[in-house]
């Protein structure tokens, strides 16, 4: 079968191309795609959106950070706006693969690849981000939970393209990103936790505890979140939340870790995140 290759330079061209060939594979940086492609998995049609400038912008508006789908991980790391307005996303980017991958891997690619271990998706889940899907017919907005349906499975319809991500800015937010691995670089998470909250007068509000690589999709530990929401933390409450989080994740045994070990990692990370909120010095570090 003949493969067609298109490299649109504008978003309109990209959406028109996708409307004409809705089964086309969309290519961004290619860091996930090249491995199966080189092994011979050639798609019917390929639309390369990596050079669409409209999809490469990082914009801070009054109450949100607007990120284009083809913003690379390297761009996230270089952005002061990302560091200040979405620190948990910056921290996930800082632990993402290596500089050689970060220069090409994109935000949209990490979301649409829909890996259970996607670190950026996890961070976006912890900051209540929404994604914008566009097609020739119009636009719609979804949460990360609505977008990612299962391993390698998203809610993107035929002819639809993920064009951007919106992260609401929450003042006074603290955050942490915890991820397993013997060294910081090039680690595919065996388990990861992205945490955000607002701490006021010793009480946590807007608590988000997102857990990665411990369920078919990045998931929020909502029972644990509910336990600590609006409360002042004490050691017993922290332990209750830790237990709740370890209980509500649904990890599997695989080549990277056993389910049992993954639960223990989640417990350790959630404990670390919550304990940091009770300690002014660590709280300050988590806020940066």
């Amino acid at each position: 079968m003949t493969t067609s290759y298109l490299r649109p330079t504008t978003l309109d061209e990209a959406l028109a191309a996708l409307a004409t060939t809705p089964t086309a594979r969309v290519l961004a940086g290619g860091t996930d795609w090249m491995i199966p492609a080189r092994a011979g998995a050639v798609p019917d049609a390929l639309i390369n959106i990596f050079r669409v400038e409209q999809l490469r912008s990082i914009r801070r508006t009054g109450d949100a950070l607007e990120l284009g789908a083809c913003v690379t991980v390297a761009q996230l790391l270089k952005s002061k706006d990302v560091l200040q307005a979405a620190p948990v996303l910056w921290k996930a980017a800082d632990r993402f693969a290596s500089p050689l991958v970060r220069s090409r891997a994109t935000l949209g690619g990490n979301l649409c690849n829909a890996s259970p271990a996607a670190d950026l998706s996890l961070a976006l889940l912890a900051c209540d981000a929404t994604v914008t899907l566009a097609s020739k017919g119009g636009r719609r907005s979804l949460t990360v939970e609505e977008l990612v349906l299962g391993p390698r499975k998203t809610a993107l319809g035929p002819g639809e393209l993920l064009v951007g991500v919106r992260v609401p800015i929450r003042a006074g937010q603290v955050s942490r990103f915890e991820k397993s691995g013997p060294r910081p670089a090039l680690e595919i998470s065996a388990a990861a936790v992205a945490f955000t909250a607002t701490v006021e007068g010793g009480r946590l509000t807007g608590v988000r505890i997102a857990c990665g690589a411990v369920a078919p999709v990045p998931m929020r530990a909502k029972k644990a979140e509910a336990l600590v929401e609006g409360r002042a933390l004490d050691p017993a409450l922290i332990e209750a939340a830790v237990e709740a989080a370890a209980g509500e994740v649904t990890p599997i045994d695989d080549v990277r870790a056993t389910a049992r070990y993954r639960r223990r990692l989640v417990a350790a990370y959630v404990r670390r995140c919550l304990e940091a909120c009770t300690d002014d010095r660590r709280l300050h570090a988590a806020a940066s």
């Binding site: 290759y5 090249m34 390369n48 090039l186």
Partner: peptide, 27 residues
Amino acid sequence: CGEGECGACALLMDGEPVLGCLTPAVD
């Protein structure tokens, strides 16, 4: 390794370090 783990194929593209094995030549 051919999968982005080792860096032996590193190249500079417009001054940015990239993996030769995971960057499409068309780009």
